[in-house]
């Protein structure tokens, strides 16, 4: 048994040596620039001192994890991280799919081109500027959003300081910034659907919605699944930069996530051990979700990322 297995391995090796050579440059890159630095993650188990390196730092075992988990911010950061991920999943993830369908369904070519180009541009504006604009636009006295609210008889609201508005504001900002860019993959995928399928449906007298439902969506399901599994991790790893720019002490209760905590501990307090421990926590949550999503998708759609 063992012999035949090793023989088949050898055979497979011979059969794919050319592929291995193609694989090699990428593989080497991964090992050098992704896995080699990963050894630094052991920082989480040290009272780490940047200048002295690992040799000069004390090994503290799980102390850093304990400090984070027992600390008063633990549940809140986990809860907020998951909530923001959930909002992203429910709103920011499906939006580009919808956008892509709208763009491909659009009949006026000029309009279509403009929509496609214009929705893509926000991606180029850096987070600092976008956050600055959000604060401007939401200002209760001068912001355009509040001007509109007042125009329609509402009352100006100081959106930036009340905790209940933080998640919607953050989600809508992310949506605006990324929807057009993320739609590109779906647009490209939609273009790949065999036009004969549509013609057949047309002959059967299917309406637009029916065609979208029965042809378009199934046609890009594999794309959606892959994108979902790949993005779920990203959603959990909420970027701290925008949150730092948008949050206020009064909105910590909904805005403080693992990455902002890790930033405060690491860069601001110089406590790299705790920062890395919190970061590892985040990665583990992401990993669990991803593996789960992969499993579920395997069962439901018979496709998976690996």
């Amino acid at each position: 048994m063992g012999l035949s297995r090793s023989r088949s391995l050898k055979k497979r090796f011979i059969g794919s040596w050319q592929l291995l050579i193609l694989l090699l440059p990428g593989l080497i890159w991964y090992i050098l620039f992704c896995y080699r630095p990963m050894i630094g993650l052991r920082m989480a188990f040290y009272d780490y001192n940047v200048f002295r390196g690992f040799e000069g730092s004390t090994f503290v075992g799980l102390d850093n994890f304990k400090t984070y988990v027992m600390g008063p911010d633990f549940f809140r950061t986990i809860k907020n991280t998951l909530f923001i991920a959930l909002w992203q999943m429910l709103i920011c993830f499906p939006a580009p799919i919808l956008l892509a369908i709208i763009i491909t369904e659009m009949r006026f070519n000029v309009l279509k081109k403009i929509v496609q180009t214009v929705t893509f541009i926000p991606y180029f504006i850096s987070a600092v500027v976008v956050c600055g604009m959000v604060v401007n636009f939401l200002s209760p006295s001068t912001g355009i959003i509040n001007k509109f609210i007042e125009l329609f008889g509402g009352e100006a609201t100081y959106f930036m300081v009340y905790p209940q508005y933080f998640r919607p504001v953050y989600t809508l900002m992310t949506l605006w910034q990324t929807a057009g860019f993320n739609a590109i993959v779906y647009i490209a995928a939609l273009m790949g659907i065999d036009p004969q399928l549509y013609e057949a449906a047309l002959v059967d007298g299917a309406g637009r919605f029916q065609r979208i439902w029965h042809i378009t969506l199934p046609g890009i399901i594999p794309t959606i699944v892959t994108m979902f599994i790949m993005n779920i991790g990203k959603m959990v790893k909420v970027g701290y930069e925008s949150i730092l720019l948008l949050y206020q002490p009064s909105t910590y209760s909904t805005a403080d996530v693992i990455s902002t905590y890790s930033f405060r501990m690491g860069i601001q307090n110089g406590d790299y051990g705790i920062a890395t421990a919190a970061g590892l926590f985040e990665a583990i949550i992401a990993l669990i979700l991803v593996v789960a999503a992969n499993k579920v998708s395997k069962r439901l759609t018979e496709s998976a990322l690996w």
Partner: peptide, 13 residues
């Protein structure tokens, strides 16, 4: 280039 289509999908099975 998008016109000619691109499908990213997942492994079947």
């Amino acid at each position: 280039y998008f016109k000619s289509g691109l499908t990213i999908g997942a492994n079947k099975g």
